[in-house]
Amino acid sequence: MSIIRTRVADDTWVFTSELYLEVNAGLVVTPEGGILIDTLPFPSETRQIIEFAERICPAGIKYVINTVSHADHVYGSYLFPEAELIAHERCREMLIQYAYQALEEAKEHTPELREVELRLPKVVFNEGMLIRLGGKTVHIFNTPGPSPEVCAVHVREDKVLFASDLMMPVPLIASPFSDIEQYKRSLANLHDYNLESIVQGHGDILLRGEVTSSINASIKYLNDIQRVVDELMASGATKHDLLQHDIEQFGRSRIPLGGIVQQFHASNLLFLWEKARQRQRASRQAMRPGLN
């Protein structure tokens, strides 16, 4: 199955997987070489990127950026052995801690992944990093929230932002590594950039007229689900009551990503519900009189 290829600027391309949740990767082409932003989950898909890059970028891929430690973004990195692999320092730590075992388990269930080798980034940074290559300036910066290591990549001259999993058809916070308050701050910080388009971690590319409203809608969604969970918890409602609040009640469509966004939404609600229950229990324990 062919990947979907979209040109978002004269020298910048997006590649979308048709095999796994419409995950996106990107390529910035310069006369001095290319900058690849993430890879696609399966070797057959990433090889299609390589074939395309060989045609339009004869100087080869100089840099590969891992914007997050998730398998669907990093598994193709090993196919670029000559390129410098770049990531946030926390991304490298999380790959070492979690990715090796996860890959071995994935290989047992998915034969195409059996050739995949985990490659660790050698160039790491903390808050941000600039790449200047062939007239392009690429700014990589940390955008924690979905996970502490998530980074966005801003192609300044093209006014394109590769937002990784910070921007999704619906924000996904149902992870032990997520932080909803950091998530909202990272989203709000995107307003500081003059953007013509945003490439989401998964799903459609957001064009100029959608950029500001989509950022604001994501912040509003996170605020709204947080408020609803707190109100239901305070009123003595049940999980069943909670799950009656479907994604469309929060201004989001249930259509993107083959409809799996509704499952993401339900996971978000349950995740926040458990967090609220933990806070409630801790508060009750703190109010108990001490033993004499």
Rank of each mutant, 00 (worst) to 15 (best):
E54C: 13
H265P: 06
V74T: 13
P169C: 07
H70D: 12
V170N: 07
D224C: 09
L257V: 08
D230H: 12
R288I: 12
P111W: 03
H154Y: 15
F42T: 05
D179Y: 08
W273N: 03
P41N: 11
I247E: 00
V211A: 02
G201C: 07
D11L: 10
T143P: 03
H245I: 09
Q200A: 15
P121Q: 03
L222Y: 03
Q97H: 13
I215D: 00
E127V: 14
R119A: 08
L27P: 04
A25R: 04
V8K: 00
C91I: 04
N268R: 05
L206C: 06
I255D: 09
E231P: 06
H265A: 02
L291M: 10
V150C: 14
T67G: 14
C91F: 01
L118R: 00
K184P: 06
H109V: 14
S178W: 09
S175L: 12
E105Q: 15
L79T: 02
M168Q: 08
Q285T: 07
I205Q: 04
L161K: 00
E22M: 13
L113E: 03
E32Q: 10
R132M: 11
A234I: 03
G258S: 11
V68L: 09
E82M: 13
G258T: 10
G33N: 02
F125Q: 00
S17V: 05
P171K: 02
L27I: 07
V29L: 06
G135E: 06
T6Q: 12
I173N: 00
S267R: 10
K136G: 04
R90F: 11
Q263V: 15
M94I: 09
Q244A: 13
R208F: 05
P58C: 08
E127N: 14
V23C: 06
E51K: 12
Y221Q: 05
C57S: 08
P58S: 00
R277L: 15
R55H: 08
Q97E: 15
D158S: 15
R55Q: 11
E181D: 15
H70W: 10
A59L: 03
P58M: 01
T30R: 03
P169E: 01
G145E: 02
G134C: 11
